[in-house]
Simulated assay, not measured.
Amino acid sequence: MERWLIAFALALGILITLRVLEAVLAHRYFKKDQVQGGLYGLIGSLVEKASTVVMAILAVFAGSLVLELPAPVDKWFSAVVIIAFIIQTAIWANELIVFALRRYQSKHDIREEGDRMTTLRALGFLGKLVLIAVAALLVLDNIPGVKITTLLASLGIGGIAVAIALQNILADLFASLSIVLDKPFVIGDFIVVDVFSGTVEYIGLKSTRIRSLSGEQLIFSNNDLLKSRIRNFKRMAERRVLFSIGVVYQTPHEKIKRIPGMIRETIEAQDNVRFDRAHFQGYADSALNFEIVYYVLSAEYNLYMDIRQTINLELFKKFADADISFAYPTRTVHLQTPAEGTGLEQTPSLTEGAESDRP
């Protein structure tokens, strides 16, 4: 009985000592991290991630050393300690991966290096997956009576049934790997999927999350996303702008000939713009139409809208100065008075003529 009390006191004392040591060290290194930075935060996180259960198992094992336990119990006790150590090591390794990703992300702009962040997150996920698999195999290998080779063989047969049951999840998993490796888009890209559009925020194992222009978060299944037609505006080197304007039919021939030159002069006066063409396109019902094409040498949407607004205002001013009127839909009605002697003098006809343009 005396040995059991000694073992209990020893285990309790070791557990309390470990807990106090954990709290003191974690506080000390986190405080240093706030002042000096560096790896002090990592050390504090590793100390904080020390599992209380693992510490309790180690304390009980240390206390049991003063006891004379039966061989089978001692064998199982040793196995439990080894398994606890493996699990604790896996927890620390996972914290190292998380710390490395967080540190890299804090020092780099996701919008500028979205492709790297996407790759690093994928590598982090694969690292965690490998870590879990290795830890699980080591745990199974240290359980008394468990033959790891037989277990792996049985898992191969059962894996087929599991794969059939989880085929949708596995499809999303492989789609996620395809997104990471092929990179049709990365974190920070602005994409359009069918009628939905937004900025990619997160590429996960099963889904991809996009922040729309109106603020809500859109969630797409990775498999469905790859089956869709995706338009990636972040990779647009330049933006092609096509628009048309119309002037009234009463515009003199000389002024019509001047209009393409006026439009070209206005567009070429803008920065970050490359003029392509301006032509008298054809005759419409109410207008003489001109078609214009130019390129904005940037993918930035706000810059594109600023340039387009400036061009529209300049064209409006130049057309007003040149006394050129913009066309808009009009309809002219001709009233015809019948000739005398036809018997229709009291019933004048109303004939709708062809459309003509009028400012």
Rank of each mutant, 00 (worst) to 15 (best):
L225R: 03
L225I: 13
L225T: 05
L226P: 00
L226M: 12
S228W: 10
S228C: 08
S228D: 13
R229F: 10
I230S: 06
R235Q: 14
R235G: 09
M236S: 00
A237W: 00
A237Q: 15
A237R: 12
R239L: 03
R240D: 13
V241C: 04
L242V: 12
L242P: 01
F243I: 07
S244G: 13
S244Q: 12
S244F: 07
I245Q: 05
I245Y: 00
G246R: 02
G246F: 03
V248D: 12
Y249G: 14
P252F: 08
P252S: 13
P252V: 08
E254C: 05
E254M: 01
K255I: 05
K257T: 09
R258A: 13
R258P: 05
R258N: 07
I259S: 02
P260C: 15
G261D: 13
G261V: 03
M262D: 04
E265Y: 15
E265H: 11
E265L: 14
T266F: 04
T266P: 04
T266V: 14
Q270D: 05
D271P: 12
D271W: 00
D271N: 15
N272W: 11
N272I: 11
V273S: 03
R274Y: 04
R274P: 02
R277C: 07
R277P: 01
A278I: 07
F280P: 03
F280G: 06
Q281L: 11
G282Y: 05
Y283N: 09
Y283L: 09
A284T: 02
A284V: 02
S286E: 08
A287P: 00
A287C: 05
N289T: 12
F290Q: 11
F290K: 06
E291T: 08
I292N: 02
V293G: 01
V293Y: 04
Y294A: 04
V296Y: 00
L297E: 15
L297F: 02
L297A: 04
A299F: 09
E300M: 10
Y301R: 09
Y301Q: 08
L303E: 14
D306F: 04
D306T: 08
Q309W: 10
I311L: 08
L313N: 14
L313A: 10
L313R: 13
E314N: 12
L315Q: 05
L315K: 02
L315R: 04
F316H: 13
K318F: 04
F319T: 02
D321T: 06
S325L: 03
S325V: 06
